[in-house]
């Protein structure tokens, strides 16, 4: 769902080994592999694949999974304070879906030779990233609707092309995710529409304030500009990435600028303007310093989000251990 800049996270991956000397056999295998990709073939779990392809996918898929899990926190915050029972139910369903999506993605990553615990270890120690959009705080109820509209909207744009990713277990997981995702964006938009069209002035102000805080971070979800994304090219050649960051970002702006008009909110970009020649919206400059600051750990909520995940994991250790101990005991009983 939140694959922003995942392919550039290699910036912080200091342990990346140098390309090993390849045998003639490897060169031949790689050529056959690339031919399969070019032919639009799907790669399955046991197929030969270049180590770099495997490693890139492990990183991308697991970070995508981590994003879903961490993403449960800013929205989960509001379940107990949801303003109606219907909204409480919708939010519970949405957050539950996100957990489920994380699970599908961890399952897909595990087919590549990494275990769930290893992936969680990487997350908890800060080695693996998650989409930095979730390092922003949800301060009002309107934030929940805006996340549905903008953040899930951006995620859908990223995810639909991934349904054709060359690595089949990931593609299949994405098909499942996309089927369930449209409900998320619709419920967010519908919530905002209700607030704007039927709500009080105070409620409308709440929505505008939320939009003002989430707009730019949503644009950053598509990752750095194409010119600054050196790994994108390789990912594109391997069918892991289908559409460029900038192209997706433009698509998103075009769609949401019109949706904003329907809602009656202003997007906080004075340079946002329809360009007739391009048949697209021009928009203002993104603060990439903020993006890198937040990605690298200095956003408003980075520490808290990770701390909550680590706490849940550590405090849950006795539960996981108990379940295993019980299962072992039962197995011994049955074997006796």
């Amino acid at each position: 769902m939140y694959t922003q800049a995942m392919d550039t996270m290699g910036k912080t991956d200091a342990a990346e080994p140098k390309k090993p000397v390849r045998s003639a056999e490897d060169v031949a295998r790689e050529a056959r592999f690339e031919a399969r990709i070019d032919a639009g073939d799907f790669i399955e779990a046991k197929d030969w694949m270049p180590e770099h392809y495997r490693r890139t996918l492990v990183r991308q898929i697991s970070q995508h999974a981590h994003s879903e899990i961490v993403g449960m926190l800013p929205e989960g915050n509001w379940i107990t304070r949801a303003p109606t029972l219907k909204r409480k139910a919708i939010l519970l369903a949405k957050v539950q879906d996100e957990g489920g999506h994380g699970l599908y993605l961890y399952a897909a990553a595990e087919t590549l030779g990494v275990s769930r615990d290893q992936m969680l270890e990487a997350l908890h120690t800060g080695k693996a990233k998650y989409s930095s959009i979730f390092n922003y705080p949800t301060l009002t109820w309107a934030d929940v609707g805006v996340i549905g509209w903008l953040v899930d909207g951006a995620a859908i744009m990223n995810q639909v092309p991934l349904c054709r990713c060359s690595y089949a277990p990931y593609a299949r997981a994405m098909v499942r995710v996309c089927r369930e995702e449209s409900f998320h964006q619709r419920q967010g938009f519908e919530s905002l529409l209700t607030l704007m069209q039927q709500g009080t002035d105070a409620q409308r102000a709440m929505v505008q304030d939320a939009v003002d805080r989430w707009w730019w971070p949503s644009l950053m979800m598509f990752g750095p500009p194409d010119a600054d994304s050196p790994n994108s090219e390789q990912s594109m050649r391997w069918g892991i990435k289908r559409i460029s960051n900038d192209a997706l970002r433009q698509k998103f702006v075009d769609a949401t600028a019109d949706q904003a008009k329907v809602l009656g909110v202003t997007l906080p970009d004075p340079d946002l303007k329809w360009n007739d020649a391009r048949q697209s919206y021009d928009f203002g400059a993104i603060d990439w310093d903020e993006f890198w600051r937040v990605v690298n750990g200095d956003g408003p909520c980075n520490r808290e989000r990770l701390a909550e995940r680590v706490k849940a994991w550590e405090e849950g250790a006795w539960v996981r251990d108990a379940a295993l101990a019980y299962a072992n005991r039962q197995a011994l009983k049955e074997a006796a």
Binding site: G99, E308, W313
Partner: peptide
Amino acid sequence: LAEWCGHAPVLEEDIALTNIALDLVGQAR
């Protein structure tokens, strides 16, 4: 039960507990 959202010992249980909470909200409504 909703307080467990995002904090359960394992992801599968997060989903299970949230599911139960959802059922209960439905019954309450």
